[in-house]
Design a protein around this nucleic acid. Sequence first.
DNA 1: CTAGGGTTAG
Length: 695
Amino acid sequence: MRSAAAAAAPVAATDPQLLAAAVEAAIASRSPRLGRAAHARAIRLLAPAIPPFIRAHLVNLYSKLDLPGPAAAALASDPSPTVVSYTAFISGAAKHGRPAPALSAFAAMLRLGLRPNDFTFPSAFKAAAIAPPSSAIGPQVHSLALRFGYLPDDAFVSCAALDMYFKTGRLALARRLFEEMPNRNVVAWNAVMTNALLDGRPLETVEAYFGLREAGGMPNVVSVCAFFNACAGATYLSLGEQFHGFVVKCGLERDVSVSNSMVDFYGKCRCVGKAKVVFDGMGVRNSVSWCCMVVAYAQNGGEEEAFSVYLRARRAGEEPTDFMVSSVLTTCAGLLGLDLGRALHAVAVRSCIDANIFVASALVDMYGKCGGIEDAEQVFFEMPQRNLVTWNAMVGGYAHIGDARNALAVFDDMIKCGETAPNYITLVNVLAACSRGGLTKEGYELFKTMNDRFGIKPQIEHYACVVDLLGRAGMEEQAYEIIQGMPMRPSISVWGALLGACKMHGKTELGKIAAEKLFELDPQDSGNHVLLSNMFASAGRWAEATDVRKEMKNVGIKKEPGRSWITWKNVVHVFQAKDTKHEMNNEIQALLAKLKSQLQAAGYMPDTQYALYDLEEEEKESEVFQHSEKLALAFGLICIPPGVPIRIMKNLRICVDCHRAFKFISGIVGREIIVRDNNRFHHFKSYKCSCKDYW
DNA sequence: CTAGGGTTAG
């Protein structure tokens, strides 16, 4: 901020030194506006005789601020450009990911007979490293550097060449250059370490580090970051912990980037506590530090903590960056916090980062997961560019609400557009959409042809989807055959899908088989036991239902209590079945009684098949009328004004009777009701649900 | 006045 103020201060004299200082300040402020002002001042005060070094300053100014047009104009308007102006231009263009202008400027200076120096070559290599790898530009720059005598002796030039060979995928050439380097410094080792990381070979990063140490070298900040990064990627927890000790001894942990990479490392190794210790101990933090801490919580099930770290960052004066907003949005998706997500969308718009592809994709994902499909569509259709993750998020959004038609349509668009090939996640989402939307034939066809059409072999998740798909449609036996023909061991989700289907269609015997497999794979899970017990109960096989319950008790498995919650005026109201503790219990009970008679008048019959024990019908009826989701709905109907959709969350699947009742209630009282359970969304409107009773 | 290797996200 100080530098911005300096740049804004008027330059009174035509003193070139003062002007140069103003240009430096404009660069530091990273503000194109101040940069243009500095340029205008230079032209006004010094034209027509601008000293050569000021011209180089101006080229540098525009290049550093990433204003390619003005930078090129400033260079072109210079009657006698120097190596320095050209190098500044090349450097800026390379830094901002514009290899083409950088390399053509390099060619232009050669044509003018200007001799590239030891500053020029590193920037030229940097540009060559990000040029299309098919072009042979990198080796050409290499031979020039040889001819001008900067290779192999100049350390800066050779390190830049090394990095270029790695980044353009010429591994053999890179390794040979590395072997032949006479001055193999830390930066050379770092280039090996970081490029191994980029190519997904963390073990090689660690090995290169030990190579550096054996050669008697000392790691610097970059080496340390790369090492932690490798440990994070490969979850080498104890190696990273040992390294942490060493880093502290060297005093390198005082560097912000090093500490950031430690926070990230501990987070990725599922040690949020240790991440927090590092974060709390940091004397200086930057926006990346806050972001690493948010991500550490978010990726370890600490959505609330992640969000509160974000709020702390904002209070500490951090601007919301694209990194931060996209990270926090995933926590909103996890919390199902549509309101929080909307608020973040507004933040993104205000900070002009809502079109960033990461942010926009995160928005599509968040809206899709939080039940705001129209908002997801709007973001999706308005974004300037899309990539694989964006498409997957949109298809996934449709899958969540079971809109198979639109999921298939978007998938079709993706294929037709031809820029992005689908991956296995895309196909999981499409199959899941078909399954939930009841497009059995289309889904099954896609499953059978996905390898031929897209070169994606069905993996375990695809099998789980297709078992679900067939199972929901009442083809449990066919699903079972597919399971038996699987080339890999069926997972929990595969057997779970079969069990769910058997429960849905009362295929008790096959369900028993699936349940037993599940008990083997995950003996502590309560959900499967409950499902099997309920299945016996609905078949009237009460003795077996009770046996399963007893077994659960013996093994010490507790059923997770069903909970539903609803947010009203920023307060979360949580309900459990038969809950009477809520402050508005009397009003809730009164409304439920009234609804019950309205429902019966409308032709609703309670579905008591899943009431847990062998009770008399009437008792079962009152039992299902105290389910947590019904209590939450009654509360919502009392508090939330007409016209506003009522959004309810549940930690387990919505119960069959509640589902039936909600359809009636949505029609009787003319309200939109949206239930998000642990499986999917249900949109109730005018006696119907978006799932078409197929879930 | 110009230079190499770097931390965070969907």
